[in-house]
Simulated assay, not measured.
Amino acid sequence: MTSAVFRIGGDLEVRRLGFGAMRLPTEPGPERESSIAVARRAVESGVTLIDTAYLYGGGANEELLAEALHPYPDDLLVTTKVGVARSGPAGEWKLDGRPRVLRDQVERALRRLRVERLELLQLHRVDPEVPLADQVGTLRELRDEGRIGRIGLSEVTVDELARARAIVDIASVQNRYSVLDREHEPVLAACEAAGIAFLPWRPVAWGEAGARAEIAAVAAEAGATPTQVALAWLLGHSPVLLPIPGTARLDHLAENLAAAALRLDPAHRDRLDRLSEPE
């Protein structure tokens, strides 16, 4: 039977179906109040893993989650990401894995989230202009200093994951992945072999019409929605997959979370296994 929980880093237990906060509006007004309500409802509904990042509003998303949820329940993990900054010539966003930038972003995240330690901190992207050893080594130093509990990576290759693991323990990987988008299947396999959590972003991605029609057909037969089928497929595909679907609507949140209870029969799963993103 598919387990409903996973221990990130071998010890930090979370429910496998989490929540991605990226889509939550943060500007003052009714939409912000709705965002706070969605975040609170997610936790009330049993979510114990919430994903955010500095990139999401330059820290505004982190501040929103702190306003909505602090003081945090003991079993809630809010994980954030660093390594993207307004470092471009005109102040535009770009990858920035320089050690001083990573350190500064971690310190600011600690203040915004109102915590003394980030239990899981992920490198948003590997900066090709900075040696990987410098980027991962800085996060290792921050872990040794007690500012970070566990270290994760995002959008990495199998080789980058292996090189990073030679420097420090890696607890999670966050790559794009869904029933119709399996480009990173080799990375998932590497994570599964090592017991590393894999947090697929964009876990519900719709491809060409034929694939969508097949998912819709399975959903109709299973008495579920296509979104629920896509999420249930992920939960059953690998025990290390921790989907983090995001939404700014309460009804969509309820729909997403209900996928945890959906069990696809072998025939349905076989049909979905044969789908893939078109070239």
Rank of each mutant, 00 (worst) to 15 (best):
A166D: 15
E185W: 00
G88H: 12
L235G: 11
Q122C: 02
I151A: 07
S178Y: 06
A171C: 04
L120H: 05
T247I: 06
W233Y: 14
P243S: 13
W206C: 03
Y177M: 09
E145Q: 15
R147D: 01
L132A: 02
D159W: 08
R125E: 03
E63C: 00
N256S: 14
E129V: 03
P203D: 07
R150V: 00
A213P: 00
A232M: 12
L264V: 12
W206L: 14
P71G: 06
G57E: 13
M22I: 07
S276M: 10
R263Q: 14
R165K: 09
L132W: 04
V43F: 03
G83R: 08
V84R: 14
R271N: 03
D134F: 01
I215Y: 15
L139H: 05
W233D: 12
L121D: 00
W93P: 01
V187G: 00
L65D: 01
T52E: 04
S35K: 13
I148Q: 04
W201N: 13
V84G: 07
E44M: 04
P278T: 09
E13M: 09
R103H: 02
E27R: 15
Y177T: 02
W93M: 15
R249P: 01
V84K: 10
I196C: 08
S276D: 15
D11G: 14
Y54M: 05
I50E: 09
P25D: 11
P99F: 01
S172A: 15
V158R: 12
R249A: 15
D75T: 07
R114H: 03
T247M: 11
V78D: 03
T225F: 03
V179E: 03
G59F: 02
V218F: 07
A171S: 08
G223Q: 14
L253G: 12
D159L: 05
D11N: 06
L110S: 05
A189L: 09
L199A: 15
V130M: 08
R16C: 00
P89D: 09
L121W: 01
E107Q: 11
P243W: 07
N175H: 05
M22A: 15
L17E: 11
R23K: 14
A194N: 09
V156L: 04
F6H: 09
G46F: 08
R16E: 07
A133F: 03
D134M: 07
R114Y: 00
A189C: 05
L65W: 03
I196F: 06
L77D: 04
L264D: 09
P200M: 11
A53G: 11
R23D: 07
L235N: 11
Y56D: 13
R108I: 00
K94H: 08
A213K: 14
F19T: 10
E33R: 15
